[in-house]
């Protein structure tokens, strides 16, 4: 029987050790370590900047800063959900030998991606201050945004991880979905370019809110409305709650499925 005395402290210890292990796995065995983490989003940024700013002559002010923020947040979402989805199947050896709360594996995966995000944000800061911009008070909202983004992403990862243990083609499906989402989330363009009748649809995707709100607080020092924040909070908490519920409901089968 699963032990019921699995306290929060124990889970935090497990998560902390798993994150450490993940960190080492990712960066100790590759030659340039963290360089790759920073290089990948920068590469994507460089290419898109070239196409949209130089070839297509986008008229947007501070487009580089604008674009980089979108890419950095988006990269976190893709990386965290992909590693989160694989976190159970990748740790098959642990799951079939020891009972421990399985969701800690998913948390460790998203937290590992959070470390990457924080490093990428350092690069963003270089571009931001390099462009002569200075943050206003509204920028402080970015911290709660990060927290909500983490919750939202973890919720999605919990669902993906649980489903992936059963259906292995989910990784292909999710890759396609991510590719589509990349273009219908305002990452390379601004929401104002989108015709009025489509805008509401784009807002159905929470990543739209995370990215456009973050841009507003950093670039035009403007605070989204209370209602918009309420929606963001409700969506993030809701997705996490659904993910947690779904994962818990299916957790007991994981050891037999993977």
């Amino acid at each position: 029987m699963p032990q019921t005395n699995t306290s929060l402290v124990r889970n935090l210890q497990i998560i902390s050790q798993l994150v450490r292990g993940e960190f080492k796995l990712r960066y100790k065995s590759s030659l340039l370590g963290y360089f790759w983490t920073l290089f990948k989003p920068l590469m994507l940024f460089g290419v898109i900047y070239l196409v949209f700013s130089v070839f297509l002559r986008s008229p947007m002010q501070n487009y580089a800063v604008y674009l980089l923020l979108g890419i950095v947040l988006w990269t976190f979402f893709t990386e965290a959900t992909m590693t989160g989805m694989n976190s159970l199947t990748g740790k098959r050896e642990l799951i079939t030998k020891i009972y421990f709360p399985r969701q800690t594996l998913v948390y460790a995966a998203t937290l590992s991606s959070l470390i990457t995000l924080l490093l990428n944000l350092l690069i963003f800061a270089v571009f931001y201050f390099g462009a002569g911009l200075l943050p206003g008070w509204a920028s402080l909202l970015f911290l709660p945004y990060l927290l909500l983004l983490l919750l939202f992403t973890t919720g999605i990862s919990l669902i993906l991880a649980s489903l992936y243990a059963r259906f292995h083609d989910l990784s292909h499906i999710w890759e396609v979905i991510l590719q589509i989402l990349f273009w219908i989330t305002p990452i390379v363009y601004d929401l104002s370019f989108v015709p009025e009748q489509f805008r509401a649809w784009l807002y159905l995707n929470p990543m739209t809110q995370f990215i456009s709100f973050s841009r507003r607080i950093f670039l035009i020092d403007q605070v989204p409305s209370l209602k918009q924040h309420a929606v963001l909070l409700a969506v993030s908490l809701g997705v996490f709650a659904i993910g947690y519920w779904f994962f818990k409901k299916t957790e007991y089968k994981v050891a037999e499925m993977i």
């Binding site: 450490r20 292990g21 050896e93 020891i98 421990f100």
Partner: peptide, 30 residues
């Protein structure tokens, strides 16, 4: 639990890292 000994390790991590992870999974603080 000591089930199928030696299989519950992560291949690409050192023994040291595996000791810490396994011990944590088994409820031992770092």
């Amino acid at each position: 639990p000591l089930l199928e000994l030696g299989i519950g390790f992560q291949q690409d991590l050192s023994a040291r890292d595996n000791i810490y992870i396994n011990a944590a999974l088994l409820g031992l603080p770092a």
